[in-house]
Design a protein around this nucleic acid. Structure first.
Lengths: 116, 116
DNA sequence: ATATTATACCTAGAATATCAAGGTATATTT
DNA sequence: AAATATACCTTGATATTCTAGGTATAATAT
């Protein structure tokens, strides 16, 4: 990513799962789509993406199939499984919690506005 | 943290710097204060905190001094330097960018609402 | 025709950050 | 006197990303 490497850690899988929620995609496409949807904030590297895809497929969060592109080239498409949708829901919930925690701290504490 | 370990990666230093913006603190206190301000979302481990503090001090983002507690025990207080304030500002800006990117993707893409 | 670029997949090794689990020591509480 | 809370620290394991390669086909430029 163009961002600090550390920030991305832990979110990569969630973002990939999210992309696939809108339809099957192949790896190369995911990198472009992630960049597009994030307004070029995320420039995921192939060396980041492929290990994520292989790990998610190994654990049955994704399935894959080969399909020929109009150009004749073969592409490996990934599809979200039911288990994968569940994982996405969990990761989004965890992200919400994490994000709220950060916002609370950055705003001077959860009780900074008299909520204590 | 109670959260997925990966999510925290990259934010630890920012959170520590943010705590110190409101006043000098010692390590043990930071862990409690971070938990309090985040509504118990962040339970930073000592093995995470102390290396962060040592690294930030080594690079002059923090300075430290010893002070005796009312109990008689010695405490090691950390203080934000000018350089540290600058780093905090940068990290907060980067967090905002990152956060916006994630929100854009989770909401279906930056142009999901017709902004394309 | 040939060379370069874009597409499309992959992996190995290095760097970084967190956590688990330990250690040391003092103060308080039981 | 023993157990717990406070307060500091370090080592090694784990996880994630990135860098930097590799392979191969299709499209474009020279």
């Amino acid at each position: 990513m163009k961002l600090d490497k550390g920030l991305m850690a832990g979110s990569g899988a969630m973002l990939v799962l999210k992309l696939l929620e809108s339809g099957d995609m192949y790896g190369y496409q995911m990198i472009e789509e992630l960049s597009r949807r994030s307004n070029q904030v995320f420039q995921m590297q192939e060396g980041t993406l492929y290990p994520i895809l292989h790990g998610l497929e190994k654990d049955k969060y994704l399935s894959s199939y080969q399909q020929q592109a109009p150009t004749g080239r073969m592409r490996k498409y990934y599809k979200l499984t039911k288990k994968g949708r569940q994982l996405l829901a969990e990761k989004q919930a965890e992200w919400a919690r994490f994000h709220q925690g950060v916002q609370d701290v950055l705003s001077g504490g959860a009780d900074a506005l008299g909520l204590a």
